[in-house]
Design a binder for these strands. Sequence first.
DNA 1: AAAGGTTGCAACCGCATCGCA
DNA 2: GTGCGATGCGGTTGCAACCTT
Length: 233
Amino acid sequence: MGRQPYLKKGTWTSDEDRKLVAYVMRYGIWNWNEMPKFAGLQRSGKSCRLRWMNYLRPDIRRGNFTREEEETIIHMQKKLGNRWSAIAARLPQRTDNDIKNYWNTRLKKRPVISENNNSASASASATTETSSSIEENSCDADSSTLLNIPAMVELPEPLAYTTTFSPSGCHQTVEVDNTCSMSEQFVSSESYWGIQSFLEQPLMTQGFDCEAVWHYQHYYDPLDDFWVNLLVL
DNA sequence: AAAGGTTGCAACCGCATCGCA
DNA sequence: GTGCGATGCGGTTGCAACCTT
């Protein structure tokens, strides 16, 4: 057995983030255990995967949870228990880790409110209803389209697809090849998720076309601005 | 201003599950 | 059917930032 190479642990540096993002955007995700060495990272595949899934993925929404999201979490936790990944499937752009942390640090501490409490807002009951119908289907597929998706999503730049609905200044931009232009300022949420899955697809596919032009920018925090400096591939 | 306490969250660990040979 | 590597999941921990005294 060969000695395991030194594997770094702990907080990721912006340089490591940049390397991982650059690698994934260029080559896609093919094997988490193998890719760190090709990406020039002294991290375990597991650590890379976690970092990507919980932090670096372009479709992650960060910042404060909305009231609707909170209510969904509370309802689903009551229904499903601590099945965070299943709950995350109901909350597009939120990671299971985020939901778990949010539950453990905030929601769990709150006094329990009855499901039948009439003081619940109309939106709350709508959320509950939706969640219940999803629950009956039990399958996660397509459920994300039913919850908490804005009716219209603004596309501020003709060549950019942007998620703009974070309340806390979280701003994510994925620019697509110039040949793919979007002439409309607004798309329906349905189209939005179509675009989203289109954008995600190459990342998840083995044999991702290395030559595909992906311009990728992602700013999630003004203080953590490595994205701003991220190279354009 | 400094020290101690608290909070929030990124990241790790270990186990479960999946998929392939 | 079995073994093994890869991936997914949930619990837990460590620590930086924030708050209180």
